[in-house]
Design a protein around this nucleic acid. Sequence first.
DNA 1: AAGACTACCAACCGCTTCAGT
DNA 2: CACTGAAGCGGTTGGTAGTCT
Length: 297
Amino acid sequence: MGRPPCCDKEGIKKGPWTPEEDIILVSYIQEHGPGNWRSVPINTGLMRCSKSCRLRWTNYLRPGIRRGNFTPHEEGIIVHLQSLLGNRWAAIASYLPQRTDNDIKNYWNTHLKKKLKKHQAIGAIFAPPPPPSGGCCSNPAEVAQLIARRSPFAADGGDSSSSSYASSMDNISKLLTGFMKQQQQSSPSPDAAAADIKPSAAQVNNNHALLSSSSFHHMSAGTGSDTPPAAACFNDMTQSPPHAQQAALMKHGGYDDPRQPSPLSPIETWLFEEAAEQVGDLMDLSEDCCSSVPMMF
DNA sequence: AAGACTACCAACCGCTTCAGT
DNA sequence: CACTGAAGCGGTTGGTAGTCT
């Protein structure tokens, strides 16, 4: 025991990342791919611990990350998966490939928990589904594992593949914009690394188009005010999880393994059926009582 | 206008898991 | 099989921007 924490070393910088650091990190990962985080600070000269580098990459610089407001559909997915899985943010995030677990966690803690509390106080509408009787998956951990495995974006989907990387044009272009501004003010010549990874306008636009073409387009079938988003989400998941979108994203965003789903296992089928049932209940409830109670989403 | 309060989010910390030896 | 260390995960914190009084 007694292994010193990686960030205890002296000279390790903490706190917010600068655009320069971001660029160094992105440049390095662009060249070598994510993974082997231990070597990242050594090889780049960044005064950061490996953990910090990994976090910065996965939570901010990684390709395909979408920032900003969560859509009602995303909220629906999060609420439902949270009720199924508990606070297994990584597993939940695997179903929202454009969101990071940190993002989802933050959003849950700052928005959804409050909303849920409020609405549970009103009618316990979003109570978690009961475990299946004599079921094969009464253990939440098992369910979580299955869901995580089921998800095509599970866990390190993008990070572990070192062979296929493409920078997050959106994020990187943003940070470059800021960086360039800074450089223009302070220094006449922008960093060479920045120039290397600066995306073309076409690339950025392309990426923007991909990202903004509503990855949850399929899920918007129930966007109407009377259809609970969870219904739309899960109904759609059973038919076409966001593989298509993700495939496109992978193509442009650096993931090279658009795995096709295998047939649903009984447990997973149950999960979806359970979701559908709950959705049915929700719809009934909404008819019964929610005409006077505002729907959560 | 200014101080207090609130909300948000990036980042850190520590524990757990897992692969390599 | 036990040990070690790297990576992953979830909880928590701290800084800051926005809002209220």
